[in-house]
Design a protein around this nucleic acid. Structure first.
Lengths: 367, 367
DNA sequence: AATCACGGTCAAACCGCTTTGGATGGGTGA
DNA sequence: TCACCCATCCAAAGCGGTTTGACCGTGATT
């Protein structure tokens, strides 16, 4: 308590003043006494309760504005018992500490909804080992009213955990094998990849490579299922050499595609799980002396990331597109709804849109 | 208050129970009475105050662990007057709502530091119009103890604003023209780009294109200065047709490089402000039938983003590399220091490392 | 033996807001 | 005229911690 003396010689004390003396803030009691009213009445006036005279309310509102009064969030939180905040717990891939690239756009969407509702957004990123501890603490410290669960895996342990400790949550994605019902927002990954694959089949491609994400992630499994369903629908047996499952980075995409293109019967097309992997696939195609969209076709899944747009006007890649920012908005809205009125049966399944870009064309004639 | 009845038929009420009945939590008073001690003593024991018997302290700690006691953050915040939280206000480019791609890695680094210090990290993203309002509210609501200022512009108005309202802050980057001293963490952008350009000059390149970010951003100006300094140092006059300043997206990088390569005297090398733009530059080079690293050289600035690594083992691009995650760690640590003991003269200048990749080679002989 | 210092503990005030349970007084209906 | 109602407003009790100031034995000091 009380600040230490500054230990800087170069700058005048005057110019430093604001650093040492934060402005004293107006509080309820002071505002009330200025108005000659009780704190009770002022509080009610500001919060729109009916039992206060409209003339009084107007006076109060005017005074509040004039004195730049903002109720202290800390006090509100304690008094109401609500945190007025939600948490996003972002798992970092333990081995490489990779942040999921869709994360920024997702929370940009979610943040819109929270700020409109007067909620704060808390982020905690951590290696996935101490996830359980973090969720428990978030709950017992009363830091948040609910959380978003990111990057669900198969039969994800976080779902029973959160359910049992009674912390409201919404999952971004789904978790195959979960025993309990839980609220979620997800893209129809299976359908998207089935359509992408069928689109290539319709163009005459028969050997189609899958460059997928790591298949302990739920979405990656669904995507593979869609890919396999499409092949099976045309009576094509799948070739394990044409299916890779890796982290979704440029380098891994490059490596996977290079390996497949070196096969004696190389693929004439790829379905790729992410924009970033696809950049590596594109590089592999170029390095092999082939031309994208003519010699080799590529369909990607496009999360419509703001900093990695699939082209300005014409899409570079043909893609199944689904805005992850919109998913963020929906998940946030659903979480707020769950906080107000818990109901694990809520969910929202978003359909991806197939957009045609420059990266696909008919299968080349001579194999 | 009080939950509404569930309106779902499919699931048994038992399985829903956790959704309706969050577990009651242990609090100080209850813990104290279980121990036959006063709340005062228990509080002091847990917080390591000296005036409590070590035997008592041990008892208290054991009981706290046994009952899974966590002090309620809301109460601590109110009682101590500290928010125990810091804010990151992320400006969204108003026109396109683009999130800065380095953001995720920066806060991953910052988050490490905060969580070790027991601080929460609050994110708010918003169009840059209502920034001022947000900072003021963050302050007057008492939601945070300090903030990180992202993406500073020339003579950024946020610096005098925060200084005057007395909210501790650290800038990630610098703001040319600021009148007051302020704490910052930044990469030596000028030096990095000077070295990158000199490296290309040493390889014999004479016409070097600059694909820069938008030059109302402070870092972009410093980078251009470094580029120009290097050219001037060799007595080369710069050609405005070889300098572009755009949003750092793949498509813009592609466009800028394509235009330069179509000049009658095209560049034989590029200095590129970001990994993402460089992907577009690479595409432009390939589309022009040229080969990266042989016909055309490229040096990029690499923020060492976790999801967009510059190659797995060998760097794809020659680059000036500086980890933005490390910058996040430093900024966070500095902010915590400023909160504890304000001092606007703190700063940290990180030097980028020049790493040689596959994208550079000697200038081709016949121009 | 009386005094002092001190380690260990506690009661109570406080942080700034919400909310419960009255109080007050003018208007109404019988 | 009197009881009753309703519109307004307020005092005080939380919320769950921290922190101040006081208290009380005990061994050391004089």
């Amino acid at each position: 308590m009380g600040f230490d003396a500054p230990e800087c010689g170069r700058y005048s004390l005057a110019s430093l003043k604001p650093f040492w003396m934060p402005a004293r803030l107006m509080n309820l009691k002071e505002l009330a006494s200025k108005l000659g009213l009780s704190p009770t009445t002022v509080s009610r006036a500001l919060n729109g309760y009916p039992e206060v005279n409209e003339a009084t309310r107007a006076r109060v509102l005017a005074a509040a504005k004039r004195h730049h009064y903002r109720p202290n969030t800390r006090a509100i939180r304690l008094a109401t018992g609500r945190a007025l905040a939600v948490g996003h717990v972002i798992p970092l891939n333990t081995r490489h500490e990779v942040v999921n690239p869709i994360f920024a756009d997702f929370i940009a969407g979610a943040g819109e909804v929270y700020s409109r509702a007067g909620y704060d957004m808390l982020i905690s990123m951590l290696s996935d080992q101490d996830e359980e501890r973090v969720y428990r603490e978030l709950q017992s410290r009363g830091a948040v009213d609910g959380v978003i669960v990111h990057s669900p895996r198969l039969d994800d342990p976080r779902i029973p955990l959160l359910t049992s400790i009674g912390l409201p949550f919404v999952v971004h994605g789904r978790s195959t094998g979960a025993a309990l019902p839980y609220p979620w927002v997800d893209v129809n990954n299976r359908r998207a990849f089935q359509r992408a694959t069928e689109f290539l089949l319709d163009l005459g491609h028969r050997r189609i490579g899958l460059v997928n994400g790591l298949e302990y992630m739920d979405f990656a499994i669904r995507r593979r299922t869609g890919y396999l369903d499409a092949l099976a629908g045309r009576g094509i047996t799948n070739d394990p050499a044409l299916m890779s499952s890796e982290e979704m980075t440029e380098a891994r995409g490059f490596r996977a595609a290079t390996a497949m293109l070196a096969l004696s019967a190389p693929p004439t097309a790829f379905v790729v799980s992410s924009m970033i992997s696809a950049l590596g696939v594109r590089r592999a195609i170029a390095d092999a002396g082939l031309r994208l969209g003519r010699d080799v076709s590529v369909v990607i899944h496009d999360d419509d990331l703001s900093y990695l747009k699939n082209g300005d006007d014409v899409p570079i890649f043909t893609a199944t597109r689904s805005s992850v920012r919109e998913a963020g908005r929906q998940a946030a809205a659903m979480l707020l709804a769950c906080i107000a009125n818990p109901d694990p049966t809520r969910h929202s399944l978003l359909e991806a849109e197939l957009i045609i870009g420059l990266s696909t064309g008919p299968a080349p004639q001579r194999p």
